[in-house]
Simulated scan of single mutants.
Amino acid sequence: MRVDVLCSGSKGNSCLVTSGSARLLIDCGSTKRYLTQALTQVDVKPEDLMAVLITHSHSDHISQLKMVQDLPLFSCCDLKEGQKKHRIMPGDWFILGPFKITVVGLSHDSPGGCVGYVIDDGISRLVYVTDTGFVPNAARELLSGADAYVFESNHDVATLMATNRPMYLKQRILSDSGHLNNEDSAQCLSQIVTGNTKHVILAHLSDEANTPEMALDAFHDGFQKRGLNDSAIDVQCAKQKIITSTKEF
């Protein structure tokens, strides 16, 4: 399996998952121009995709539905586009080509709910979790021991509080239906990462309330506090308009 996070952040989110010739897209945010260019960079056309998995209905995750409306769409929420939409719910699992996909319920203030995905191609396993105020304890066993993680590390709390954002927005982000902060993300990852894990991509970093350096420092600190060695893990921060890729795993 290989992962290419095409874009990640408040202006757009999309991730390509590849196993052999099979390709899935998770979310389809950003602009049409950028998403088209990003797919071209990884040598993929929309018609090459098997399906699109949607996490939730916020515009930074679904703004380019028209680009993929002829493909099978899997979503827990209502979508304006897509005659081939399949309704999914947390706890569901289904097969697409070589992929077994398990739907994980998350906590985010989006109409119709929000989900993450565990994707297994029979050789390796990917966990995709973004846009959640917390990770439910009931899901942690399912999320444990994956080969790769794309995992939210949205903000540094002190930096968020120092921004000029209105207090109601800060409270929303900090809430149980908002976004994972760096420390909570690191703590959770330190509990579910195992010796199997080769790649971690920290995702959905805030432009105003985070930096890659802060997110990475929090990740390493979280592991050190539990006496864990993370030196064998390739850790990266996803960018808003630069593709972030793993090697095959």
Rank of each mutant, 00 (worst) to 15 (best):
H58N: 14
H220Y: 11
E81Y: 15
K225G: 06
D230C: 13
E208D: 14
T132N: 01
L126D: 07
S124Q: 11
M214E: 07
D221L: 15
M67T: 02
K239A: 14
W93A: 13
C188N: 05
P136N: 06
I233C: 00
L143P: 00
Q224E: 09
G122S: 05
D207I: 07
M1C: 02
Q64F: 06
G133S: 11
L228R: 13
Q41C: 10
I119F: 10
F223H: 04
C76V: 12
K239S: 14
C114S: 15
G29M: 00
I101S: 06
R87Y: 15
G122E: 00
Q64V: 03
F74T: 09
Q236R: 08
V3M: 01
R140K: 13
T132M: 02
N229D: 15
K225W: 14
S190K: 01
K198C: 06
S63H: 07
T36G: 14
G20C: 04
T36R: 14
A139Q: 14
F151H: 00
L205Y: 02
K198T: 03
K85F: 07
F99S: 09
H56Y: 11
N13M: 12
S14L: 04
H220V: 08
H204W: 13
L16V: 11
S185P: 02
H220F: 03
Q191C: 12
S21W: 02
K84N: 15
E248W: 10
Q240F: 06
I242A: 13
Q69Y: 03
I26A: 01
A215D: 02
V42N: 08
N210Y: 09
A203G: 01
L202S: 04
T132Y: 04
N181F: 05
N154T: 11
S245P: 01
Q171P: 05
G122K: 10
G113C: 11
T244C: 06
D4Q: 10
D70T: 10
G97M: 09
L126G: 03
P90W: 12
L202P: 07
S175Y: 03
Q224N: 10
G222W: 00
T132F: 03
C237S: 07
M67W: 02
R140S: 08
D234I: 03
I95L: 14
G29C: 01
H56T: 02
A186N: 00
A139S: 14
V17N: 05
S206N: 05
R172M: 06
G116P: 10
S14G: 12
D207S: 15
N137L: 14
N196L: 03
H58G: 05
H155S: 02
D78L: 14
Q224I: 07
E47T: 09
R172D: 06
I201E: 00
A162M: 05
A146D: 00
Q236T: 13
H155P: 01
Q64L: 03
G20Y: 05
L53W: 12
Y117V: 02
Q41L: 13
D4K: 06
L73I: 15
R2S: 14
L24E: 11
I233P: 02
P136V: 04
D60G: 03
T132P: 01
G29F: 00
N181A: 06
I173C: 00
R140C: 09
D156K: 11
Q41P: 09
D147N: 07
L202H: 09
L126C: 03
D147A: 10
S63P: 02
A148N: 00
N164Y: 08
G195M: 12
